[in-house]
Amino acid sequence: MTTEEVANQLVKLCREGKFEECIRELYSPDIISIEPEGGPWESKVQGLDALAKKGQQWNEMLAEFHSSEISDPVAAENFFSITMKSKVTLKGMDHQIDMDEVCVYRVEDGKVVTEQFFYTPMPQPA
Rank of each mutant, 00 (worst) to 15 (best):
V6D: 07
I97A: 09
C14S: 14
M84T: 02
K44H: 03
F65N: 13
Q57L: 11
S86Y: 03
E21G: 00
M93W: 11
I31V: 15
K111M: 10
K85M: 09
K18A: 14
F118I: 13
G38K: 04
I32S: 15
K44W: 07
M93T: 12
K91Q: 12
A76V: 10
K91L: 11
S33D: 15
G39Y: 14
I70Y: 08
G39E: 09
M99S: 02
S28I: 08
K85F: 04
A52Q: 05
L51E: 10
M93G: 00
V104N: 07
S43D: 07
E20C: 06
S86K: 10
S71K: 07
R106A: 08
A52M: 01
T3N: 05
G39T: 13
L10P: 03
E35V: 01
N59K: 15
E69A: 14
E20Q: 14
I32V: 15
A50V: 06
M61R: 15
G110T: 02
V11L: 01
K54A: 13
H95C: 07
S43T: 07
R15P: 01
V74A: 09
S43A: 10
N78I: 01
E60A: 11
F118G: 06
D100M: 07
E20V: 11
L51P: 01
S67R: 12
V113E: 02
A7Q: 06
P73S: 05
E4H: 06
I70W: 14
A50S: 12
Q116D: 08
V74D: 07
P36M: 09
I31E: 12
A75K: 09
S86G: 13
G17C: 10
S33V: 05
V74Y: 11
Q46S: 11
G92Y: 11
H95M: 10
P29T: 00
F65E: 05
W41T: 11
E64C: 07
